[in-house]
């Protein structure tokens, strides 16, 4: 009768899930840019986002994973599909998929890749393996403390968070005004 009570779910078969999710993310990420059909690309992108959400879960960040699913997979991708369905797929599939500025895009991608590699190689001492002991069970509460503060004090990111939400509010109002004018 060993009823071990953990505060968080202990990971199972970690390497398998890591490589599975990472592989799924990469393969579907490649499908996103290679599929001619925009709907197929969008569906692949959803798989990528869900795989990344799974990786977040493995990093003991369930809240980020949940938000990733709600906001990206559930919200933004629905709007993506919504727009794509209104586009004439047959014609867009016949279009050339690569336009003239693809060398620039390639250069940007290479630059990003080299940044990641250099950060991975050189930045080990910049980012310690683990900042704090991660607690899955209080992850959400920790994020709340960071964003909103606790016990009457502002958290470290409260100001930035509020500014960002104000920016979004302005964006929403702008969008409403822009569409209202036309009608």
């Amino acid at each position: 009768m060993n009823s071990v009570v953990n505060t968080g779910a202990a990971p199972v078969a970690t390497p398998f899930f890591f490589y599975f999710l990472a592989g799924a993310a990469i393969v579907s990420g490649l499908l996103v840019i290679t599929r001619r059909n925009a709907v197929h690309s969008a569906l692949s992108l959803i798989v990528t986002l869900l795989s990344v959400a799974g990786l977040y879960l493995m990093l003991y960040a369930p809240f980020v994973a949940g938000v990733q699913i709600i906001v990206y997979a559930g919200g933004i991708m629905v709007l993506f599909l919504f727009v794509i369905m209104l586009v004439n797929i047959e014609r867009s599939a016949k279009d050339r998929q690569f336009n003239r500025i693809w060398p620039v895009g390639l250069a940007a991608a290479c630059a990003l890749l080299s940044l990641f590699v250099s950060a991975f190689v050189k930045g080990r001492n910049l980012f310690p393996d683990r900042l704090v002991a991660l607690q899955e069970s209080s992850n959400t509460q920790q994020i709340a403390a960071m964003l909103y503060g606790e016990a009457g004090r502002m958290g470290p990111y409260t100001f930035a968070f509020e500014i960002a939400s104000l920016l979004l509010l302005v964006a929403i109002l702008g969008a409403v005004i822009m569409t209202k004018k036309k009608i």
Binding site: G8, A9, V39, L43, I46, P62, F63, A65, G66, V67, I69, I70, A73, G74, G75, M77, V78, L81, F82, M85, E136, S137, S138, N139, T140
Partner: peptide, 28 residues
Amino acid sequence: VSDMNIGILFMLGVSSLGVLGIITAGWA
């Protein structure tokens, strides 16, 4: 099965994925 720390959030997120099935069905 499990008591997730983000239970209700997870639930909302996953159930919102259901609409993808409907959209893709309608489009396909």
